[in-house]
Simulated scan of single mutants.
Amino acid sequence: MTTIKLALCQMDVIDNKEENLKKASSMIAQSVEENADFIILPEMFNCPYSNDKFIEYQEEEKDSPTLNRISSLARKNNVYILAGSIPEKENDNLFNTSYLFDRKGEIIAKHRKMHLFDIDVKDRITFKESDVLTAGDDFTIADTEFGKIGIGICYDIRFPELARIMVENNALALFYPGAFNMTTGPAHWELLFRARALDNQVFCIGVAPALNEDASYHSYGHSIITNPWGEVLAQAGLKEEIIISEIDLDEIKKIREELPLLKNKREDLYEVAKK
């Protein structure tokens, strides 16, 4: 049996980087006490979710105080940590980037958000990440001791092609640090995680910041784990909390044998339709 004990750290992100890092460190420590193997932080866990703050809080990978802190904690506690995302600067570009650390504190994968959050829901919410951020171009499938995992960020989950490509490259679980808002969250957050898990018969995990009503952007929270049958195994509310939950990757084989969706795909027809 291949199991992973996950810790989803739904933290309250404020406008103070050092305090955010202290909170992340505290939640990691609590997760370690619960014997978690794999700890996940939210999208922009060190930074308020707004374009001006992305610029203010930006860090370069090679001398990032945030990444150095997380690396040290992964190594000290012998755990995997998916550092949700941070505003990462490279040359003149700014990216929304997630980093995966192994038990030795080494970066074994990084994902730059591929689909930028440019939306305008009339009279409700408008946001345009592309005003300051650059989109990433790489698919991110990481090798871990548990098997391969795929990584996306928030808005990336709305694009089923990305999830399918990660699964076709043998990812058994898909992780999406995210920060849906109080408009799109109630409407789509759970639906999307259940759909991506069901369509691809994998585990799908989302970790978001808690709702901070004093912030300019209101995160929906509701960090979530869905299984290959499309069921919700665990889900947070709006407030700060840690979800500790164990997933059994062997469930994937069982469900794919019972309902062989991936095997029954008509690739012959799809290829013809693309031409």
Rank of each mutant, 00 (worst) to 15 (best):
N91M: 13
N91G: 05
N91Y: 14
D92C: 00
D92S: 13
N93S: 15
N93E: 12
L94T: 12
L94Y: 02
F95E: 09
F95D: 05
F95Y: 15
F95A: 11
T97L: 00
T97S: 13
T97Q: 07
S98Q: 04
Y99N: 10
Y99E: 01
L100V: 10
F101K: 00
F101R: 08
D102I: 08
D102G: 11
D102L: 02
R103N: 01
R103C: 06
K104N: 15
G105I: 10
G105M: 11
G105W: 10
G105E: 11
G105V: 12
E106A: 15
E106G: 14
E106P: 09
I107V: 15
I108D: 03
I108H: 02
K110I: 01
K110N: 14
H111C: 03
R112W: 04
R112D: 03
K113G: 07
K113Q: 13
K113H: 05
M114L: 04
L116K: 01
L116N: 01
F117D: 11
F117W: 14
D118T: 05
D118L: 03
D118F: 06
D118S: 03
I119K: 04
I119F: 05
I119R: 06
I119M: 07
D120I: 00
D120E: 08
K122I: 15
K122A: 13
D123Y: 02
D123F: 09
D123H: 07
R124N: 14
R124E: 15
R124D: 15
I125C: 11
T126F: 13
T126E: 14
T126W: 08
T126S: 15
F127T: 10
K128A: 03
K128S: 00
K128H: 15
E129Q: 02
E129D: 10
S130M: 03
S130R: 12
V132R: 07
V132G: 12
V132W: 08
V132Y: 04
L133D: 09
L133T: 09
T134M: 07
T134A: 08
T134R: 13
A135C: 07
A135F: 12
A135D: 09
G136F: 11
G136K: 02
G136I: 02
G136L: 04
D137M: 14
D138G: 06
D138W: 04
F139K: 06
T140W: 07
T140R: 03
I141N: 10
I141S: 04
A142W: 14
A142P: 10
A142Y: 13
D143M: 05
D143W: 05
D143K: 08
E145L: 08
E145H: 07
F146E: 04
F146P: 00
F146D: 10
G147C: 02
G147R: 05
G147S: 02
I151D: 05
I151Y: 09
G152P: 01
G152Q: 07
I153M: 07
I153H: 02
Y155E: 14
Y155R: 01
D156T: 00
D156N: 02
I157T: 09
I157S: 13
R158K: 13
F159S: 04
F159P: 00
P160W: 12
P160C: 03
L162N: 10
L162C: 08
L162M: 08
A163R: 01
A163W: 06
R164W: 10
R164E: 12
